[in-house]
C-alpha cells in the first residue's frame, strides 16, 4: 500500500506550488525595520579587549573588578574577550610608552571594524603624571582615535561601568555607527628575526 502511494506521489511531482517573488519595496522596508530593531536589541552587547599601554596597573585592578561578581559587567551586555579579533571595543590604559606603541597599534589593527577606543584613567587621557617624559607618547589620543574617555586615577569600577554603559546606549542607536578611521601613527615596522 505504502509503495503504491509513494509511486503515485513521485509520478505526480511536488504538490507545493510556486509563488510570485516578493515585492522589492517590501523587502527594503522590512530589512530597514529589522536592522533598526536588531541594533536596538542585539546592539546592546559589546565585546571588550583590554590593552595596557603603560599603566601603573592601578587601572587594571579596577577593570578586573568590573568583571567580578561584585560588579558583574556581563549583565549590561559587556564582556571581556581574549583576542582583539573578537572585540568591538579596545579599552586602553596607560600613557602609551614608546615600547608599547607597536603592540598597541597592532592590536588596534587586529580589531575588526567598526570599533571603538575607550581611554581609561588619567594617564591614558593625556599622560597624567607621566606627561612630558621622553619615554611616552602622552595619552592614547597620540596613537589612536579615541571615542570615549573615563577619568580617574584609577577610575572606580562604577565609573568604568557607567562610561561603558553610555557606549552601549550610543551603540544601540542606529545612527551612531563609529566612523572607520586611520590611526595617527606610522605602520609598525616589520622585521625579520635575527639569526643566531
Amino acid at each position: 500500500m505504502a509503495w503504491n502511494a509513494l509511486l503515485r506521489a513521485l509520478r505526480a511531482g511536488p504538490a507545493t506550488v510556486a509563488l510570485a517573488p516578493p515585492d522589492q519595496a517590501d523587502i527594503d522596508e522590512l530589512s530597514a525595520r529589522l536592522k533598526a530593531s536588531s541594533l536596538r536589541k542585539l546592539g546592546r552587547s559589546l565585546a571588550i579587549r583590554q590593552v595596557d599601554s603603560g599603566s601603573c596597573n592601578g587601572c587594571e585592578l579596577e577593570i578586573q573588578m568590573t568583571a567580578s561578581v561584585v560588579y558583574d559587567l556581563e549583565r549590561f551586555g559587556l564582556r571581556f574577550v581574549a583576542s582583539p579579533r573578537h572585540a568591538d571595543v579596545l579599552l586602553v590604559t596607560g600613557p602609551v610608552t614608546r615600547n608599547m606603541q607597536d603592540a598597541l597599534l597592532r592590536t588596534w589593527q587586529a580589531t575588526p571594524d567598526p570599533k571603538w577606543v575607550v581611554a581609561i584613567g588619567d594617564c591614558a587621557i593625556d599622560g597624567g603624571v607621566f606627561k612630558g617624559s621622553p619615554a611616552i607618547l602622552g595619552g592614547i589620543d597620540a596613537a589612536l582615535p579615541v571615542d570615549l574617555v573615563i577619568r580617574g586615577c584609577p577610575p572606580t569600577p562604577a565609573a568604568i561601568i557607567a562610561g561603558l554603559c553610555a557606549l552601549v546606549e550610543a551603540h544601540a542607536r542606529p545612527d551612531t555607527m563609529p566612523r572607520t578611521r586611520e590611526p595617527r601613527t606610522r605602520e609598525p615596522r616589520t622585521r625579520e628575526p635575527k639569526a643566531r
Binding site: D52, G54, R98, N99, A103, F130, S133, P134, A135, I136
Partner: peptide, 11 residues
C-alpha cells in the same frame, strides 16, 4: 619586559 617603561626615574 620593559614594555611599560615610562621614564619614571628621569621624571
Amino acid at each position: 619586559l620593559g614594555y611599560l617603561h615610562k621614564g619614571t626615574l628621569g621624571l
